[in-house]
């Protein structure tokens, strides 16, 4: 059964994509580093400390997460991933977006020809409900329909 959640659009957008879920903070640098360095066409998460995502492909998907964590290079790493076209299609935050992720999605929006749709404040219930592989439909007003 599909469930609907309402968040705040940080970067508004519409899409219907597959979910990939991190229940813990997403370490941006550690996650993108290996694929970016190897000039891969997709991001296979390389953060060994994140058992939810390690080894999984997040390119073109809806990355569901609480917040990002780690180095203050985080924003420009997200921007770089977008410029290299290995970024997730959307980032769906259960909590308020953090400053590094915000910088990343805004830099992507203003300085590249692509965007990462970003919705925050979706709540813990969203993160508890969504599972890897579920279809996620995102609407311009920040509505997220899961399943």
């Amino acid at each position: 059964m599909a469930r609907e959640f309402k968040g705040r659009p940080v970067i508004a957008g519409e899409c219907k994509v597959e979910a990939v879920v991190s229940r813990q903070g997403f370490n941006t640098l550690a996650s993108f580093q290996k694929s970016a360095l190897a000039k891969k066409k997709e991001t296979i998460v390389s953060d060994q400390n994140n058992s939810d995502l390690f080894g999984k492909n997040i390119t073109g998907k809806a990355l569901c997460l609480p917040q990002t964590i780690g180095s203050t290079t985080g924003g420009m790493v997200i921007y770089t991933a977008t410029a290299l076209n290995i970024h997730p299609r959307a980032m769906l935050f259960s909590e308020p977006i953090d400053s590094l992720a915000a910088a990343g999605v805004i830099l992507s929006d203003v300085w590249t020809n692509d965007t990462i749709t970003a919705i925050d404040n979706l709540g813990q219930e969203f993160l508890d409900y969504v599972q890897d592989g579920m279809q996620v439909e995102i609407k311009m007003d920040g509505t997220v329909i899961v399943g």
């Binding site: 203050t72 420009m76 400053s99």
Partner: peptide, 25 residues
């Protein structure tokens, strides 16, 4: 400023005011 260790030092030990900015910002 960015660089998390410098930002936390400037805010806490010096009493300056800075957010935890990302690179480029």
């Amino acid at each position: 400023w960015a660089e998390s260790s410098a930002v936390v030092y400037a805010n806490s030990v010096i009493g300056a005011r800075c957010n935890r900015n990302s690179g480029i910002i």
